[in-house]
Nucleic acid binder design. Sequence first.
DNA 1: TCTCCACACGAAAACGCTTTCGTTGTTTAT
DNA 2: ATAAACAACGAAAGCGTTTTCGTGTGGAGA
Lengths: 343, 343
Amino acid sequence: MKKRVTLKQIAKELDISVSTASKALRDSKEISQDTRDKVKAFAKLYNYKPNTIAISLQNRRTKNIAVVVPEIVHHFFTTLVSGVEKVANAQGYNVVVCLSNESFEQEVNNMEMLANGRIDGFILSLSKGTLRKKDYRHLQEVMDQGMPVTLFDRITDEVMCDKVVIDDALAAKKAVTHLLDRGCKRVALVTTVDYVSVGCERTRGYMNALKNVGIEVDDQLILKIEDMDTCVSEIQEFLSKIEFDGVFGVNELFAVSAIKAAQKKGLRVPKDVAVVGFTDGILSQQFSPSLTTVVQHGYDMGQTAAQMLIDRLESDSDLAFTTQVIQADLVKRESTAVAIKVT
Amino acid sequence: MKKRVTLKQIAKELDISVSTASKALRDSKEISQDTRDKVKAFAKLYNYKPNTIAISLQNRRTKNIAVVVPEIVHHFFTTLVSGVEKVANAQGYNVVVCLSNESFEQEVNNMEMLANGRIDGFILSLSKGTLRKKDYRHLQEVMDQGMPVTLFDRITDEVMCDKVVIDDALAAKKAVTHLLDRGCKRVALVTTVDYVSVGCERTRGYMNALKNVGIEVDDQLILKIEDMDTCVSEIQEFLSKIEFDGVFGVNELFAVSAIKAAQKKGLRVPKDVAVVGFTDGILSQQFSPSLTTVVQHGYDMGQTAAQMLIDRLESDSDLAFTTQVIQADLVKRESTAVAIKVT
DNA sequence: TCTCCACACGAAAACGCTTTCGTTGTTTAT
DNA sequence: ATAAACAACGAAAGCGTTTTCGTGTGGAGA
């Protein structure tokens, strides 16, 4: 087991001082070309790599950024992490991933654990627990200590920081409008409880779309789901007793469950009922019928969020906070295809 | 912006030395109860948190572990990361996630980037690039420097370290046997190219299952896929020109694509052809017909891998390398349901 | 010859903490 | 009374770097 070689050892071997060795490796012109070469050759030979921890301690920057997500087994969040990874790595940063599991306490704990010098900044999507509690002191605290935070997707107006989101209301409106354009008259909505910012926005978009064409919102057609674990049966129960010819589900699972529930009722998709979802994951793409859905471009969001954070980390003047809105698109697939009329 | 308070500042304020402050906070009996209380009160008041980086430098341990996965937008890998996160966090470790994107170079780069003091050990699944190249020097190198590595899922015999896997061959055999038991005579196999260790093992399991009941392996029934991007059409093309009554796909996507291809051919699933997949992701669960599949228990694997790594990190005597085999189970669903005979 | 200035390098502080090894002043045993 | 033991604390080294500020050469210019 050959231990890592340090600057001190190099210095001793070459009979120079540590400072000379350090400067030589960094190509300081203070050092003669001769010694520079010598030191570099030696360093290469012994595979010297500077100790990152020591450097971090020195300049009080770790080149680590944390991504805190409610859960990771979820297409949108994983693509986002991918995007963050990409731009972070390209700029010499490492990404430490933390899961809040939708819990306020875990979110707080994780942030405290990381804020003590381990990382330079946070990229975070609020947990449901936090959204319900509306307690954002842990965010404010790290920011007060000069540690930047970039919020994404599930955000709040109550803390001032960089944010990156999609226009959920607009995207939802587009989705529902697509349904309406297709001729749907009674569009059901399967959404989340209101404290989830994005769910709420999407609900708003649904209503806007209806108002836009003069259809009154019918509460009978709206299902708000609290517990993801029981959503499948809830949706089935809900759809079994209403009349509808379209469904907008605010995520993949809701949409797919709606399709299955409709089919169980003897309705054909897309012939009798058209369905639109949210998030373009593997399920939307591969389900049969494939799902018309809103694509959130999580990869792009991740890249944007990471870049915003890094920009702030690397600028000395303090930038004004901005909110970036990422374009969301509706991708049309089989679940809303217009039936080909056989005349 | 209130900067973090350091030991030095506490010491100065309280007019004691840094060492006394440090000891007081760690409840050293060298310090009088009186000063201990005083220091702790002050520390609490000013929300003192020791700087993790300084401590890391001091004892040359970071309490960070790295998980390197080929890609993260994949059910198995995300559940694994979740499992790692859980046991790591519970023991005060942070998890830094790195993506190799199936590329040898990125795997090497990432590991080099992290090995310089940032982390204490690796949990890693080999990228396809690495498997193809059969070059494991980067692993050997970090291990030579005393940094433990735990390999999972996609492993190799060529490096000696802790490993955690499932018995892919056995699981595949179970899967195919289930098909055979159901009455299938011509079971097609959709698998990966051979250098992917797990794909290869699963192929072996398929063959074993056939041999077991005296069926000869028919190469016509085997499709090996190199490029994931074109797999859907490849599978369709493949299945269009063979006769089969069962399919075993070595992942979710292969299996689902097979179902769709069969349906396109006018075959009913599971009535005319039964299908089994691998990995119990959202697609397997939600696709219609739902998929009979091998569940790999990624969450358990992650927990096991993390625990193995941490055990090694925290033991001073060096443990013998072990390979843990996680139980894999076949979950039976609609895609292999026996038709209910209506007499 | 004397001064001045590159030049090439080294000493030491600093980052924030832990830990070892004194150094006091006080108490106990002899 | 004297040595020994103890209690409570501080100084300093050390972790591996970077960086500032010398310092000792030698050569150029006056």
